[in-house]
Design a protein around this nucleic acid. Structure first.
Length: 439
RNA sequence: CGGGGCAUAGCGCAGUCUGGUAGCGCACCUGCUUUGGGAGCAGGGGGUCGCAGGUUCGAAUCCUGCUGCCCCGACCA
């Protein structure tokens, strides 16, 4: 993409409404536009990040055996009356009345809708296990939206729903999501720590929040250092096999948020093992049994031929929140530092003297060659001063900067800079291409 | 929903106390010179001062009401 033909409205100064660093940087890097409290447009640069995160989530959901669907943003109130949640949910639910005076809501989640799908089609345990997920905009009329996309009133969420015959198979479904989440967040360059979470009226120990460590996180977290070094399950993980040893390994070390912190248990750890930090919740998984299937009549026949309510779980990932969370976890004074896996472009190509025929030709050639090789490149071909280009490229945080100017070219040299470390290499133009193809 | 703050050009701000023709920096447009860490000079465009009432000869400024946004708290992917 040529910057001169792109839409990247970067700002030198921070709009005063933004307090938290990820919000400031998203505004300055031209990723989003706020229209009202908690309501944003995603501009091209932000949208690319959102799409990359979404794709990682999708790949890992698919790998675990979940199947993608797309449910509506508007849901009929009657489904929620069946589950009993229409009245319970409270003011956070965004409600409207349509022209026929029917009650409609903008979905804050989709247990009712997915249960309606399930009961419409699935009759037998032989069709299980089943896990249906979607990546869809959700609506919550938050009392107080804040922190940019970290707490919007409209947000993109991956929500998955598992259906199983009984507790044991439901637990296996839970484990699959647990492991999928470990992989998902790891692929985004995040250390996500699963922590025991409250389960509400259902009880049991089957609910975990996944929090990533970031200095500006919303909640205080306490955990064992062991959790930082545990191996992430590989691509070859057998999701049809028994995953309970992995889950056991990840749930054995101490980990709790502020609210559930047990100071005595934490202090029982060797001091060098204790981590007290800040965290951002990016995922939450639950097993809730027959809470929805029972009142909504989602039953299946077991091996004995008798119908019984299906056992369910739900599993959320805050996709749009992750954009903010990743920035919270990866930035410096100059701007964003994208992990390679979610970077909107892999390389920022800087033409230090746009308009100089020699430099223009060199840049164009490299731009074409990298692009043809499948590398995503944002080519800064604008006629700005070098300093402005460096500052802007640091701000938007692409993993690699390829810097080409007249002085270097006289020596047949270009410079490759790694955004995260600031490390620079001087290479020939061919050498730079070879180097980038290798990473 | 309680507490606090803010609202003047695209962004950041001054001007409001003490009423008298709306300003600065950045950004933007034109020209020239520049180009290795947010360039220089010259010229130029852009604002019903959040909205509605009121006071006054005259309101960004004083009064009343409203709206929007931000922060802290309670609540949450």
């Amino acid at each position: 993409m040529r910057l001169s033909r792109y839409f990247l409205p970067t700002l030198r100064e921070t709009p005063k409404e933004a307090e938290i660093v990820s919000h400031r940087l998203m505004l300055r890097a031209g990723m989003i536009r706020q229209h009202a409290a908690g309501i944003y447009s995603w501009l091209p640069f932000g949208l690319r990040v959102l799409a990359r995160i979404e794709e990682i989530v999708r790949e890992e959901q698919n790998r675990s055996g979940a199947v993608e669907i797309l449910m509506p943003t508007m849901q009929p109130a009657d489904l929620w009356r069946e589950s009993g949640r229409y009245d319970d949910y409270g003011k956070e639910m965004l409600r409207i009345v349509d022209r026929h005076k029917r009650d409609i809501l903008f979905g804050p989640t989709a247990e009712e809708v997915v249960t309606d799908i399930f009961r419409g089609f699935v009759r037998s345990y032989r069709d299980l296990p089943l896990n249906l997920y979607n990546i869809q905009w959700k609506f919550r009329d938050e009392v107080r939206p804040r922190f940019g996309v970290m707490r919007g009133r409209e947000f993109l969420m991956k929500d998955a729903y598992s259906f199983d015959l009984d507790y044991d198979t439901a637990r296996a479904a839970y484990n699959r999501m647990f492991v999928a989440y470990l992989r998902t967040f790891d692929r985004m360059g995040l250390k996500a720590i699963p922590m025991q979470a409250a389960t509400g009226p259902i009880g049991g120990d089957l609910s975990h929040e996944f929090l990533i460590l970031a200095q500006t996180g919303e909640s205080g977290v306490f955990c064992s250092r062991k959790l930082l070094d545990l191996p992430i399950p590989g691509e070859d993980t057998d999701f049809r096999g028994d995953l309970s040893p992995i889950v056991a390994a990840w749930t054995e070390p101490y980990a709790a948020t502020e609210e559930k912190h047990d100071a005595a248990a934490f202090e029982a750890l060797p001091e060098a093992d204790r981590i007290a930090a800040r965290g951002i919740e990016v995922g939450h998984i639950f097993y809730f049994g027959t809470k929805y299937s029972q009142p909504m009549g989602a039953s299946i026949a077991g091996p004995d031929g008798a119908d019984r309510p299906v056992h369910m779980g739900s599993y959320g990932i805050g996709v749009s929140r992750l954009v903010g969370a990743i920035i919270e976890a990866g930035h410096d004074d100059a701007g964003i530092v994208w992990p390679d896996a979610v970077a909107p472009f892999q390389v920022g190509l800087i033409n230090l003297k746009a308009g100089d025929p020699v430099v223009d030709v060199a840049c164009e050639t490299i731009y074409e060659r990298l692009t043809k090789a499948g590398i995503t490149v944002l080519y800064d071909d604008r006629d700005d001063s070098a300093g402005a280009k460096f500052a802007r490229m640091d701000l938007i945080g692409l993993p690699w900067q390829l810097i080409i100017g007249p002085k270097g070219l006289q020596r047949h040299e270009v410079e490759l800079k790694r955004r995260a470390t600031g490390a620079r290499e001087t290479l020939t133009p061919d050498g730079a291409i070879t180097r980038l193809l290798a990473v």
